[in-house]
Design a protein around this nucleic acid. Structure first.
Lengths: 249, 249
DNA sequence: TAAAAATTTGCGGATTTTTGCAGGATATTC
DNA sequence: GAATATCCTGCAAAAATCCGCAAATTTTTA
């Protein structure tokens, strides 16, 4: 990776997340911490970012007040995103839902990854499309306005033609007895199709939503292969899911 | 291998991959690194690429974040959008392309309008989806990264199943002899399908792009029903199009 | 057609840039 | 206040660049 290219990537990440950790960048770009440090220093001298102990901040961030967090539970979602990204390998065919957690995952993808992402979510697809080396396919149909998500029989039919290696769904409710549930009928139909079309199902959620319930069931607990939250896998509130045979990350 | 030929190859590689490594080029073209270096230097002076330590980057790499950047010729595009919106009536089935002019049109739609919009452009669909009373359908397929536009045979097949009342295309070049032209092969294929699937074709463009030419033809002058620019219809530079039988707004 | 001129190319060597590493200094955390 | 993480400094190896020059090639000219 060229130096300028690397610096452009760092800048992109800073503008996206408002902050970057030096260790994260080392991990993603696969270079020594000294190199990243020097990059941050150069970019800071150009005023493109603000260098702080352990990483850097976006120059716009230091002005704005901390009160208005851009995304609800942003910190938790970043942790979830990082765990999720570690499951994606080169050459994989990935089905993906929508939501802020998924978008955070898309932003966290390592730049050299070469995978194919398929999604019905317009914001998620826009985010995947910024990735330099991966391919993106959008499933078309009528667009559900609140969720910016394609829904309908055409979309479901297209998804059924697919068999993906892995499927990531951001979920709004999960309960040990009632499984995953949601409140938008059309979207649930599409999610169900996705679950049928994948070899491995990964559910992402902040711990707050664990043991909550909504009107429409998406899938059973047994359908989940991997569950990712911001908590460590040995957290007590996750143990029922571990015992149900789910791999908790 | 001739010098020009070599430079054309380098340029092709840069535009394809957004970057080239000097060592890769030496290896492929079988010439000394100094020769390649001199080529890159020349091309950089012509602004065709950006030379960096170890190789070169596409000029598009350098341009900063588009999101905050104001839209080029915003005032003109607002005028065009207003004229275009007047053509859309309740109950209409509307095919739409992408681009900043189309997005401006989507923002200008009167809130009480009830129409159905179909598009391949992710940004345009996101914009239409904000409208309170209209329906939006997105055409799915592989997403072209630069243009955030679905392209491919699936998209074209879906469009061919449609017969829309009206189709709005933002165009990049128009010439009285060569018609409408563009520079992205995949996107042009989709636009052609749209033109075939509509009863009425409306082309939107700022006057600056009139009488300009690009490599790939989208359609003939005769295919256009209505042409909209920011100029009044009696402007001299539009008269050739009026005389060609196009309704100029 | 052959010589002259201009351009292009490759090479050796000096110089600069980039990167990673080792160490000691400084900051952060519990 | 000790343990850990982060930062800075100098250094050295590797890679890339720059420079001048001569050989090779192409173009122009006589």
């Amino acid at each position: 990776m060229l130096k300028k290219e690397r610096q452009a990537y760092i800048l992109h990440q800073v503008n996206l997340h408002n902050k970057v950790l030096l260790t994260d960048l080392c991990e993603h770009i696969k270079v020594s911490d000294d190199t990243i440090r020097r990059d941050l220093q150069e970019l800071a001298e150009e005023g493109k970012l603000i260098k702080v102990h352990g990483g850097a901040l976006s120059p716009s961030f230091h002005k704005t007040d901390h009160s208005s967090e851009p995304v609800y539970s942003y910190t938790q979602k970043r942790i979830i995103a990082q765990k999720a990204v570690s499951l994606i390998k080169n050459g994989m065919f990935v089905l993906s839902g929508g939501g802020t957690t998924i978008i955070e995952m898309a932003r966290t993808l390592p730049p050299q990854l070469k995978a194919t992402f398929v999604s019905c979510s317009l914001p998620a697809v826009q985010e995947y499309a910024n990735h330099p080396n991966s391919e993106v396919i959008i499933i078309g149909d009528k667009v559900s306005k609140n969720s910016k998500f394609s829904v309908g029989s055409e979309a479901i039919a297209k998804i059924k033609q697919i068999k993906s290696d892995i499927c990531f769904l951001g979920i709004n409710s999960i309960d040990i007895n009632h499984g995953v549930s949601d409140n938008d009928w059309d979207v649930v139909q599409v999610k169900k199709a996705m679950i049928e079309s994948t070899r491995k199902l990964v559910c992402l959620t902040i711990a707050e939503k664990i043991n909550s319930l909504q009107p429409i069931q998406v899938c059973d607990i047994n359908d989940i292969d991997i569950l990712i939250t911001e908590l460590p896998p040995d957290d007590p509130c996750l143990q029922p899911y571990v015992q149900a045979g789910i791999h908790v990350l």
